[in-house]
Design a protein around this nucleic acid. Sequence first.
RNA 1: GGGCGGGUAGCUCAGUACGGAUAGAGCAUCACCCUCCUAAGGUGGGGGUCGUGGGUUCAAAUCCCACCCCGCCCGCCA
Length: 641
Amino acid sequence: MFREECETALAYALKKTLPEIKVETLSLSKPPNIDFGQLASSLCFEFARKLNQKPIALAEHLVRAMRKSSFSLIEKVVAAGGGYVNFHADFPKFSALVLSSVRQLNFEYGFVKTDCPVEVIVEHTSVNPLHPIHIGQARNPMLGDALARILEHRGHAVSRHYYIDDVGRQSSVVAYGYAKLGEPQPDEKADCFVGKIYTITSCIVELNRLKRALELAKTVSPSDDVAKINKDLAEWMSVAAELEEKFPALFAKLLAKIGEDENPEEEINRLNRAYEDGEPEAKRLIRKVSEMCIQGFRETQERVEVRYDSWDWESDFVWSSQVSKVLQKLQTSPFVYTEGGVLEFDAEKVACTLNLKAKLGLREDYEVPPLTLVRADGTTLYTTRDVAYTLWKFNRADRVVNVIGMEQSLAQLQLKIALYALGYSRYADNFAHFAYNLITLPGYKMSSRRGRYITFDAVLDEAVERAYEEVSKRSPQLTETEKREIANFVGVGAVRYALVDVDPSKPVIFTWDRVLNFETNSAPYVQYTHARACSILRKADRKPENADFALLKEKLERELVLAVASFPDAFIEATEYLKPNLIADFANALADKFNTFYNALPVIKAEPQELSDARIALTDAVRIVLHNALNLIGVVAPEKM
RNA sequence: GGGCGGGUAGCUCAGUACGGAUAGAGCAUCACCCUCCUAAGGUGGGGGUCGUGGGUUCAAAUCCCACCCCGCCCGCCA
């Protein structure tokens, strides 16, 4: 509203003073400082040269030409800073408008609905059912869930999907090991149990393979190959030593049982083929292990309140022949060829033929690598199956957002190109890969295959434990139950916030103090600020019925009103550019301003009561906006802590 | 070799899509502030060649070109 009024005023002045100049867009921007008003135009700098005048003279000229009598929300317009035209809002009116609007819309404030709501599928997490979710992967559900929440609040119909990748060879590895153990019931959290079996089995099988490769290489291959194999062997031997030390009983048992097989690798490949073919015994076994692991995932996800609308089994797409149908269709296109018994997809040819490179943001001279669709043994590859899955998704939604690590960017690009090749350009246009960078540990990369990872559960446990110590220290008067409850949402909130707060494209090195931060720029800080606002309102114990917003004259108060007023813009930006981290930053910045205000000015005891009431209304608005912002990133907004 | 992402204070990061006013926070460090609405807080100090070098512009952390460093990808893995 204020923006529109400023634009109208500026356009009017321009037309009056400089009718010969045409401007398409009057881009008004937020000045860096409240003293420069609330909106500013820098267009005088652009025209000054053309008109051979000084920018400031031009700005003054424009200001004089404005029709002041038509101002409503504008208090005054000033030429300043060498050539800016600064618009100052009429704060009493502006504050009254903003604060009453927040109060009225309450927990809907800021969630501006889109003009064209669509059905959106957000696929996220999709950790393979082989081991617990580790901290490197936990960034995914935090981002994915925040995205889903944001899109939902924008008015879209959002469906959260988890893609269970049970068709890869690793699923056969863990199922093979599990069968060797005699299919025991887990004696601990199921995904941890599965994770151990996976890592140990995988290690033993790899050692076995390398040893046999070495024998072969000694007789026929050059010494380079032998050296390479020896190096790998040494690495896996050290992994084996680590695992044997950590889990001696399980390791010994798997070693003995797997040792009974002449060629474990062959057994695993056979199981993998049998599973893709849908043989009942293979299905029973692999599904059993996968389900077990997923049960563990659900427990973890429940702790952080991340839930899914649909769990989609990759194998279902293979068995239901949706994958083979896609393959058939692709083969009728001119973009598929056979080479050495394998089926290849010529993504480069598609990109050239359909003239996609500019559209996809690729350089014209960049050659898109081909994608292998089918192995020589007839089994399919991950991306091939993902094409079928993507088509299935578009039967249920208009838009698809895949939250997948950036290391899969090429595969996601090839997938998108495959959609174009199949003639589904509308799907391809509405297909987005939301890429995020890896979380690494200081010094080494997390590796599920090597069993080197910190689980998400362990991080949550530690965070909650640390939060409990903090609560006990800071609020000893609380009951044990209250402390536990607070510790939980503070600990979980801290982790969620820490993983959403940084730009997804930045690599993150995991350190405990990054996620266990309870000070400024963290969930606990924002939560604390929210609780503080609640506390004031509780103590005030009255509705701000006699508020006089003209009394909110302090710079701090005005900055707060402005921050509250800018929440809808921040929300829209976060949604349209898929940037959940903006919400975390916004919440933190608002909390900062509120705490400064809190320390500097009394609310309840302010005199006269009209001022006190205005400040109560302001506090209430801050409370609502903090609540709404935290809600978008899945962090609890507590009334006490 | 090619492609993609990142490089901003000692450390962790905002800001870059859409160029604008003194480049912002936090941590750490030093000095302060609870007879007062929650001190998980606030105030103040010190700390910057915005990777490097060119270019475009009235104006560049932001746009263009080249180069350097780190990570990822270029697989009949996922």
